[in-house]
Design a binder for these strands. Structure first.
Lengths: 125, 125
DNA sequence: TTGGATGCAAAATGTTTGCACCCGA
DNA sequence: TCGGGTGCAAACATTTTGCATCCAA
């Protein structure tokens, strides 16, 4: 299935690309370092950077900013979170901005929300 | 007024801090390089980085990711945009996620939305 | 006056590029 | 087979750090 997915997008399937795709897919949100480590440090940095760039250009993954830069697969089914800056937990929020994008005329390719706050418990501390 | 604002937050007011604050405030969204240039390259990089870090920790500014990393003043009154990946224009969207954050119990400190798409005109090209 | 802020220089990190070799279609 | 992909090394860019000096309170 990944074979067809890549073919659709006219992207040659290599071991490295498949591995990185799977790493991001299986881990929801990963940093560059996460990817590096999960490859057992066997893939060259420049290759990783080039593949990330390729995936971003083809809208296969999203790039988001939290404390660090994170990558995640760009799926239709997805979730948004609010992050506690103190204890670093995250909680699901039940809103998606694209549901409200009426009459902008845009074709939405990707989106992200970043909300930082202090959770209930941490406010009491 | 900036004097009092900094005093409230227990931050010593220096020429450099005031300058960077004003640069970000007057320009809505700026990159590190923008700040550097608008200081006429007269401020040291390490000073700029340290001030940005200080402002972030104190929730004076937000850090967001578009093509590059942008800083903006963290205000109550604010706007969200959708960006066209082809012509790079941006359009205002009329939704703010914090209006919908019911019963999470979080105290929201900052937030951002990033939506990328293709605008009406570019879809026709 | 004095502790924290800045500038400078250097180190450490992170990212990009050119090129020879490799491998998937 | 062959053109694009990868690994390697080097260049380049970004960010952090230690320390002497400076300046706002």
């Amino acid at each position: 299935m990944i074979k067809e997915y890549f073919k659709e997008k006219n992207i040659k399937l290599t071991k490295q690309r498949e591995l990185i795709f799977n790493i991001i897919d299986e881990n929801e949100e990963v940093t560059f370092k996460d990817i590096k480590e999960k490859c057992n440090n066997e893939m060259d940095n420049s290759t990783i950077y080039r593949i990330i760039e390729l995936f971003l250009k083809n809208n296969i993954i999203n790039k988001t900013l939290n404390e660090d830069i994170y990558y995640s697969i760009n799926k239709n089914e997805h979730k948004h979170y609010i992050y506690c800056v103190k204890c670093h937990k995250k909680d699901l929020i039940n809103i998606c901005p694209i549901d409200y994008l009426n009459n902008t005329g845009y074709k939405v390719l990707s989106h992200q929300i970043q909300i930082n706050g202090i959770c209930n418990e941490c406010q009491k501390k």
